[in-house]
Computed example of a mutant assay.
Amino acid sequence: MTTIFRTASAALVLSLSALGTTPALAQDGDSTTIHNNDDGSDYAVLGLGGAILTDYEGSDDYSFTPVPIGIGRVSGFNFLLAGNRLSVDLIADNFGPGLDFQAGPVAALNFNRSSTKSIDDERIKALGKRKTALEVGGYLGIGQTGVFTSEFDRLSASVSYRKGVTGAHSAGIFTPTVTYMTPLSTKSVVTIFVAAERAEKGYAQSYFGINPQQSEDSGLPVYNARGGWKNWTLGGAGAVSLTGNLRNGLQAFGGVVYRRMLNDFAESPVTSIAGDRDQWLGSVGLAYSF
């Protein structure tokens, strides 16, 4: 379970983004027309997901873990919890169709290689454990509701920056993301997204660098990892109601993400010899809206 929460975040966040649209969906009589009737009321979606993820960042081995999830709105302010990551939007929603701005804090616990028990590759185990890193920062975003398919499809873009303040590294991670969500009916919704990560040198050295002693212990060559663009990802997610509609009750969700490691993060022996620069992540789960 060492790297699960960090690597699961992308798929789970997009799954939850789909679930988070449910309070505003409404339908006229027997028609299939979806209207945005969001009145700004509070709501919450709580659930548990199961994720298939790499043993560590850059690995070609996979394992399964449960991950808690939650999304909601209180007094117009949104919050999102996906595994290890928590964010809060401090700008109250612009309810209904139109332009919306987001800004607020984000925090994550990075468990990457903080234990060797779930890592199959003996060479990576020999590199030693890393401390759990607390990464804190903020994000900015803008979104347009009512774009192509209905009054509630949504196109949004955001950037976030987190910096390690304790543990394995003290470097920053910059993440731009573009997301598109559209409801298919009052019972189902889908989301697609593209994102990238840029990490500073301290992060690269902590997780992808190999010093002479580590090289001797593991058999992997010495490697001096620099900062830069770490990866890009492309993913999709969806949710479907199991009890009538997405506004309340039980629902199932799932997501799949392709991740491509880049530059020194791909060329490091941690990835190029012991792992794989091409990675697939997935999650499924159940959630309850109220």
Rank of each mutant, 00 (worst) to 15 (best):
V88N: 03
T65H: 11
D61W: 03
L16K: 10
I210S: 07
I210Y: 06
A168K: 05
Y139H: 11
S241E: 02
V178N: 02
S170A: 13
T175G: 04
S115P: 00
T175L: 05
D61A: 14
A195M: 11
Q205I: 05
V13F: 07
L234T: 14
E216I: 14
Y43A: 07
S206G: 04
E135Q: 12
F265R: 04
S156L: 07
K187H: 08
A239W: 11
R6S: 13
F111T: 13
N94F: 02
R130K: 15
D120I: 05
F64T: 15
Y203W: 11
P68H: 10
G143R: 09
L80I: 06
D60T: 07
L12R: 04
S156M: 06
L127K: 06
A108F: 10
G228D: 08
P105S: 07
E216D: 13
R6W: 11
A266S: 12
R162P: 00
A266V: 03
G104P: 06
G285N: 09
S206M: 09
F101R: 04
Q27S: 13
A103V: 13
Y207E: 04
G70L: 14
D217Y: 03
D28A: 15
W232Y: 15
R6D: 07
E200R: 02
Q214T: 04
L80R: 11
K230T: 07
T233L: 13
D278S: 15
G29V: 09
G219T: 05
L242Q: 04
G285K: 14
T2R: 09
I124S: 00
V222Y: 07
T33D: 07
L109N: 00
L246Y: 05
G172L: 06
I91E: 01
S160W: 02
T54Q: 11
G98I: 06
R247K: 15
L90G: 00
S156N: 09
